[in-house]
Design a protein around this nucleic acid. Structure first.
Length: 649
RNA sequence: GCCAGUGUAGCUCAGGGGUAGAGCAGCUGUUUUGUAAACAGCCGGUCGUCGGUUCAAAUCCGGCCACUGGCUCCA
């Protein structure tokens, strides 16, 4: 092989020889014109780079286009610079903070000084961005010394960039320039601005400099951009779809819950339909738990402050607990978590190894102070109910119990048609954030990993995501429109058994410490219901629907037949209503459709005569005429099997 | 808590310095109906709240409250 040639390995495994110092763009050109036209950046040995960077040695390579995450990342990063350029043109005194790409789009944090910047200014910035994009300005990289970099920004009075540069090493600092805008930036960037064809600035927000509440708050402008107008249109449609599913809107329309200013913000009131939904979910989980050997307990809503001092939650989470109240000579608190109560139940008896594992479960309501700006419908509230349980077991039982809780959680989400990603949340090196002995942590993390491997789970490890008393397994579900939500957790805890001095008598007749597993598949009923509403867009599976069947008599003459059908369903616990209003059938159908009721049964002269029902399925229309018994059995089976709706994505 | 925005009838929304408007819902009557809206009449609002400017405020200004999107936080 000639000395001035290198071998590049492509994502499909193909190897090809090129001359040394070839650029990513030239590689793309060698493959096809189209690829070269669509190329945004190149990944060389796992590192994303500009297309014009020479490749000096053998490497794995992939050309990043819009179709890859890396390509979109580059595209949005460059779009953030374009946003900054536009802002700079319109507001010469604006000072720039940071402007990174995010999962969908990008943002830039900007200090506008005394200049007011609000929603009205957005359209002119968007317009300017498109105008500048058409200039086809190239993104040019320039290496600068630390001194030069500092000088550049000091001259512009930009304390933010100066702050950033101070943390950088001399010799590694690069600027990128496009049009009239120069930015401190590691890159990489797309070749030029003309690739950006469509831009939408989506949001304005305040953001503290470096995320620090004590620093100055900058104006964060969020946006997305696309290489084609059509992609922007599709994105906007998706936003519309998400809006249609918004649980706050559907929650109101379907009578799930309400908020009331006299009751207080963040304190939802469950309406009858919502109560049915929630109780049905609880019954589902309760049955599954009883089947798996859990015992249900009930504990009060307040507790002596000593309980939370003992657990360590009180000092650690003081900011999010309500002030203690005076009761006789002692202080009591609204309970911020259920665990300490359960630990005291454990301690109520002398426990033998024969009693373990002891699995105590409770749908326990807890109260936490959330900052007012943080409250959001049912998904972030100040009083909520956890589907909590604590499993007290021996070290030998631990892995098996972890495994069972994972299986339960997976079973639960499968029932709702939600794919699950698993994350092992371990601690990072910052040890003071966490309680308990280091060896326990190592051991617990080790055991969690072993279980995950033994179950062949596809998992990711996230350092620094652990809770303060132990590592966690987090379940991240994907809903019907692809959004991710962190729901259930399983946590291993070696700390609380020490703090509460929990013991059991082993087979050796000595006292031992049990291990605790905390787990909550739904997490909070409020939040889970909010996600469920959006996942199903309000079109719940039959078993969860607050009203499962609506019977629609053609005229008042058939109300009695309709009622007799309803009575049969009620006997087996099916939630059924008869629409006996003197409305036309079309209106009754329309109302039932809008209420998202799974089945509508139309009954008139023919049906009464033959003992049949004419059925409609929500969103599907007429599904034909059934003998009453056939339909009855069909519904019974669909209800007990917890089937997903037929047209569910 | 902070930044930006919103607040008009039960719901969706129009209006805008000179005594408040529509559709739907509700109520009453008529209609007795065959697969997504029958017809008519009626009821319904201190224009979130408190204060200021003004001869006059729902409208302009300010405080507060609630809600929305973010930031910080999340056992």
């Amino acid at each position: 092989m000639p000395e001035d040639s290198i071998t590049l390995t492509f994502p499909d495994g193909a190897k090809k020889e090129f001359k040394k110092n070839i650029t990513g763009l030239e590689v793309a050109e060698s493959i096809s014109k189209g690829l070269a036209r669509n190329a945004l950046s190149v990944t060389v040995n796992g590192e994303i780079k500009d297309l014009d960077v020479p490749i000096t040695q053998d490497a794995t390579i992939s050309i990043n286009t819009w179709d890859s995450d890396e390509g979109q990342y580059t595209f949005w990063h460059s779009s953030a610079h374009l946003l900054a350029e536009a802002v700079q043109e319109l507001y010469p005194d604006a000072k720039f903070g940071i402007g990174p790409p995010i999962e969908t789009g990008f943002y830039y944090d900007i200090d506008f000084g005394d200049e007011p910047f609000g929603q009205e200014q957005i359209p002119e910035v968007e317009k300017k961005m498109i105008e500048l994009a058409r200039n086809k300005s190239e993104f040019k990289q320039k290496e600068v010394s630390k001194e030069e970099a500092l000088e550049f920004y000091k001259a512009r009075n930009n304390e933010y960039k100066v702050d950033l540069i101070k943390d950088l090493e001399d010799g590694t600092i690069t600027f990128y320039e496009q049009g009239s805008f120069t930015d401190l930036c590691r890159g990489p960037h797309i070749p030029d601005t003309s690739l950006i064809k469509a831009v939408k600035l989506t949001n304005l927000a305040g953001a503290y400099w470096r995320g620090d509440v004590n620093s100055k708050q900058l104006t964060r402008i969020y946006g997305v951009s696309f290489p084609k107008q059509k992609l922007l249109d599709e994105y906007l449609e998706q936003l519309e779809e998400a809006k249609k599913r918004d649980h706050k809107k559907l929650g109101k329309e379907l009578g799930i819950y309400m908020m009331d200013r006299m009751v207080g913000s963040g304190l939802p009131l469950w309406l009858p339909n919502g109560a049915v939904l929630r109780r049905t979910l609880e019954a589902f989980l309760r049955d599954e738990q009883v089947r798996r050997g859990y015992k249900e307990v009930i504990t009060p809503h307040i507790g002596n402050i000593e309980l939370y001092k003992t657990s360590g939650h009180y000092p650690y989470y003081q900011d999010s607990q309500y002030n203690p109240m005076q009761v006789d000579d002692e202080e009591y608190m609204l309970k911020p978590m259920n665990c300490p109560h359960h630990h005291r139940i454990y301690s109520n008896d002398l426990r033998s190894y024969r009693d373990l594992p002891l699995r105590l479960a409770e749908f326990g309501t807890v109260y936490r102070y959330e900052q007012s700006g943080e409250l959001n419908g049912l998904s972030r509230v100040r009083g909520f109910t956890q589907d909590d349980a604590h499993i007290y077991c021996t070290h030998n039982q631990l892995k098996d119990e972890i495994k069972k809780t994972i299986e339960l959680t997976q079973f639960v989400f499968k029932t709702f048609g939600m794919p699950v990603d698993i994350r092992l949340s371990f601690r990072d090196e910052n040890e003071d954030k966490y309680g308990g002995e280091s060896e326990y942590w190592e051991r617990a993390q080790q055991e969690i990993r072993e279980v995950a491997d033994e179950m062949s789970l596809d998992y990711k490890v996230a350092l620094g995501e652990a809770s303060f008393y132990g590592p966690k397994i987090d379940f991240i579900i994907r809903d019907a429109i692809g959004r991710k939500w962190q729901l259930g957790t399983v946590q291993v805890d070696y700390v609380m058994p020490e703090r509460f001095d929990l013991t059991y008598i082993g087979s050796d007749n000595d006292k031992h410490r049990p291990v605790i597993i905390h787990r909550a598949p739904f997490g909070s009923m409020e939040r889970f219901v909010s996600i469920l509403i959006e996942h199903f867009a309000g079109d719940f599976p039959l078993w969860l629907s607050p009203v499962q069947i609506k019977i629609l008599p053609i005229s008042e003459d058939f109300n009695d037949y309709g009622q007799s059908c309803a009575d049969r369903f009620k006997e087996i616990g099916i939630r059924v209503e008869v629409d006996s209003r003197s409305e036309m059938i079309g209106a009754k159908i329309r109302d039932a459709e809008n209420a998202k009721i799974p089945y509508m049964l139309i009954v008139g002269a023919k049906e009464k005569e033959n003992g049949t029902v004419s059925a409609r399925r929500h969103k599907m229309g007429d599904i034909g005429t059934f003998s009453f018994d056939d339909f009855f059995n069909k519904v019974k089976e669909e209800n007990t099997s917890r089937s997903l709706p037929p047209n569910h994505k």
